[in-house]
């Protein structure tokens, strides 16, 4: 124990909660990926020194209260419309850092149009996409990203393609749009993936300063409440099943397409 006292001194701290996170207790279920991603965004904001220049747009869904946890200015958007808020905010204040934070119901279902068009215009924003294959807040209904066979409260016998269509790979769709510069799929289920994800988020923010297009970061996540699994088991289930359908890693790391390449068609 004497040892512990020697170790646990201020000067020996190698990791602590960033000050950009508030002291509020998060309302998320134990083990929910949202908390980890919030932390990473906050750490990136701290490291880049942009707390006074960052505006977050929160969605409707479990992360509607994201503004209670990251100590920056926030707008709480209408369901699915965060990219529209972000578009105007960034265009009117081009020197600020603007990011949207949305779940799969918000971004891929009701807000699919806003998502695609913001990416297609190449808005200089960072879009954070939490894909846990389910509507968490409303109690575990099917999302566009729900895997086939996955049981949810609106697919009690498992998602069926004839009835419900195919699980939507939003990130692949977005990667095919010329306005995006950086599109990646990450996760936060273990220490290594957390570190990788943080790098990705940081890159997404740095791209804003370079004004090279939209950065889109999917974080394949768990919703242990909706999935009805303990957090550790949910992570394992995600690795086994979600990663197979939603492969991890960068899909695109470039700049938005060169506008000059497009003018030739009417020349």
């Amino acid at each position: 124990m004497a040892d512990l006292e020697k170790i646990m001194k201020e000067e020996n701290i190698v990791y602590k909660k960033t000050k950009v996170l508030t002291d509020n207790v998060m309302h998320y279920c134990p083990g929910c990926s949202h908390g980890v991603v919030h932390k990473l965004i906050a750490e990136v904001i701290e490291e880049l020194g942009i707390q006074d220049k960052t505006i977050g747009i929160s969605p409707v869904g479990c992360s509607v209260f994201a503004y209670n946890y990251i100590d920056i200015d926030w707008q709480e958007a209408a369901h699915g419309r965060a990219p529209a808020n972000a578009t105007a905010t960034k265009r009117l204040m081009p020197d600020k850092f603007v990011f949207s934070y949305q779940g799969d119901g918000d971004l891929a279902s009701i807000g699919a149009a806003e998502t695609l068009h913001a990416c297609n215009r190449g808005e200089n924003i960072t879009m954070i996409f939490i894909n846990n294959a389910m509507y968490g807040m409303t109690g575990g209904q099917m999302a566009p990203t729900t895997l086939v066979g996955m049981k949810t409260s609106t697919t009690p016998y498992g998602r069926n393609i004839d009835l419900n269509g195919y699980p939507m790979k939003m990130t692949e769709i977005v990667a095919s749009l010329p306005g995006t510069c950086y599109v990646t799929r990450q996760s936060v289920h273990d220490a290594a993936s957390v570190k990788r994800c943080k790098k990705a988020i940081k890159k997404g923010f740095e791209n804003q300063a370079k004004k090279i297009g939209t950065s889109f970061i999917e974080i394949t996540s768990t919703c242990n409440s909706g999935w009805k699994m303990p957090p550790v088991e949910a992570n394992k289930w995600m690795e086994k099943h979600m990663f197979a359908y939603y492969p991890q890693g960068d899909l695109k790391d470039a700049e938005r397409d060169n506008p000059d390449d497009y003018i030739k068609y009417i020349k």
């Binding site: 958007a77 419309r81 529209a84 578009t87 105007a88 905010t89 265009r91 149009a113 806003e114």
Partner: peptide
């Protein structure tokens, strides 16, 4: 002044929401 043709009226009004949030005349 920023002028933007949005993808829908839904997007336009939410762009207005975003711009108005910044204290801008939108």
């Amino acid at each position: 002044m920023v002028v933007l043709q949005a993808e829908s009226e839904v997007a336009s009004i939410n762009m207005v929401y975003g711009g108005a949030s910044c204290g801008k005349k939108v």
